[in-house]
Design a protein around this nucleic acid. Structure first.
Lengths: 196, 196
DNA sequence: CCATTTATGGAACGATCATTCCATAAATGG
DNA sequence: CCATTTATGGAATGATCGTTCCATAAATGG
């Protein structure tokens, strides 16, 4: 059925390489040269396989979001308690302070900050990804409330927004060079807000 | 003493116009065309008066920072209580949800997010501006502790980082289209963290 | 092996980027 | 009014942007 020369690269690996570039440089600042070099393919192949820069970004963001959410859902499910999951997540992130990983931040929050309330699909998808993160936090909060670790009187949606705000702020702190102490102390206070 | 033709524009107004452009579009995405149009002067005059784009940005960021800090210090000083000042600040910001003002965000947090841990002066100055904001928060926290409104046992520096994290996160929430309810609920929980 | 189909490398395009330069306009002090 | 100084408008520069196009290489099914 398939005719002609088959592609010589892995679309999967190429998309992941593109994701790394957008993650490190941002949507607009990532040039096609950067992308081609990281993806190790020619201009023709990029446009043939991924359409254009915008579509490539959407694919990269989609992969990042789905990979992140899948990992978080898996960890939440496997965690002895939802509160423990949240503690682990935020404390581990705070521990990244000073590292290259911390300087990268999170592709979703990075993109939301860069693209703001623009009209195009990249901005819309970034914002929708934040909604998805908040939904996952709300799941965790509700389970934590059922388990008795999280204040049951509080509105779960409000606590979820609070956590998204906290993670977004934590990412900004880390990007702007906060120390491990600063980040982990801030996270400790944030997590205290769940208990009472 | 001064000889020759005097400049036909107000350097002060021109710098403020440039600040608006960097605020709305970001450092890299703000083109010299955007800047010239907003500042209403010719290329020659821009380079003559401000050096280049980087120096113009540094001047814009400096103005934004000093104006913001001066306003906040004034409001803190005038406030009946430091806790009241913080409540007012965060609640007012949350109320911006959905507005054009919310979509702009804060030039300092925007720049810190865009420029991350880069080597150049723009990045360094953005990060230093966040340090200055945290210092102001710490002042407010210490006064709030003295006034009995803020948990006296807590480390003031830790609470200050917590507030900077909160404001950074709140700005991200607002940029990504959070509703007034989401933002103000998250802020309420954040402020509760100061009391206990 | 051949005709067909598809991928590939690289040149080329037009647009825009930040910056420089120069001829000219305009205001000055004397 | 003149010589001098500075600001101004706009053209020019070289680089880079995202994208398109085309000739060629490579693999296919028959």
């Amino acid at each position: 059925m398939t005719r002609g020369r088959p592609i010589a690269f892995s679309p999967d690996e190429a998309a992941n390489a593109a994701m790394q570039v957008f993650w490190a440089r941002g949507y607009e600042s990532a040039s096609t040269r950067d992308l081609l070099e990281a993806m190790r393919l020619s201009r023709s192949s990029l446009y043939q396989a991924f359409g254009n820069k915008e579509q490539l970004f959407l694919e990269a963001l989609r992969r990042y979001r789905e990979s992140l959410l899948a990992r978080l859902e898996r960890r939440l499910e496997a965690a002895p308690s939802a509160m423990g999951f949240l503690e682990m997540l935020f404390c581990e992130t705070a521990q990244e302070a000073g590292s290259e990983r911390a300087a990268l931040g999170c592709l979703i929050f990075n993109s939301a900050s860069e693209l703001g309330q623009q009209d195009g699909l990249p901005s819309q998808h970034a914002r929708q990804s934040i909604v998805a993160i908040t939904a996952l936090f709300q799941q965790a909060v509700m389970r934590g409330q059922a388990e008795g670790d999280i204040a049951p009187k509080r509105n779960a949606a409000a606590l979820a927004s609070y956590l998204t705000m906290g993670m977004a702020g934590l990412r900004t702190l880390l990007k702007s060079g906060a120390t491990t102490d600063q980040a982990s102390q801030a996270v400790e206070l944030l997590l205290d807000g769940l208990r009472r």
